[in-house]
């Protein structure tokens, strides 16, 4: 079939060929456009999923530190970026809030005292690319989770 196309002098097959190519290009163009849109959606979804995973991981580490009793310690390393975006994590007694590019994701945590090392702040900010230690500290018969 290919040799007919290349040797045909009347151009009749070439016309068929051109129409086929036209339709093929139309179909390929549609598929490429749909695929590009889907890829973009997946990337944005991945960023949200990573933020959700991070907040759940931190909330779980806080629960575990609190439940295991005095002196229990967990070390967490925060990722440098979430799918290439900067982020910030705020932790307080009600849960963990992750903020990325003007969006928020929150993980609930049962009410407990959370503070920084010297106990002066009830809300702890966790920054990207750092290592944090979560420790169960007991003072005045009350347990609290210290993040430093």
């Amino acid at each position: 079939m290919g040799s007919y196309i290349t040797t045909d002098q009347c151009a009749s097959l070439n016309l068929d060929f051109m129409i086929s190519i036209l339709f093929l290009l139309l179909i390929l163009g549609s598929i490429a456009s749909v695929a590009e849109g889907r890829m973009k959606t997946v990337q944005q979804g991945e960023e949200a999923a990573e933020a959700r995973l991070l907040s759940e991981e931190i909330a779980q580490a806080i629960e575990e530190t609190y439940l295991r009793g005095e002196g229990h310690e967990i070390t967490l390393k925060t990722p440098t970026k979430l799918k290439g975006s900067d982020y910030i994590v705020q932790v307080n007694q009600s849960g963990v809030l992750v903020r990325v590019k003007g969006r928020c994701g929150y993980s609930f945590s049962y009410s407990k005292q959370v503070s920084n090392l010297d106990g002066t702040q009830d809300e702890v900010i966790m920054l990207p690319g750092r290592s944090y230690t979560l420790q169960n500290v007991k003072d005045n018969n009350h347990h609290r989770v210290v993040i430093f």
């Binding site: 979804g45 949200a48 999923a49 959700r52 003007g102 969006r103 928020c104 994701g105």
Partner: peptide
């Protein structure tokens, strides 16, 4: 995309 954000509960700050 909307369903993914709904499912993950990941919203713009004001909405949140």
């Amino acid at each position: 995309h909307g369903a993914i954000l709904d499912g993950l509960a990941f919203y713009p700050e004001e909405t949140f």
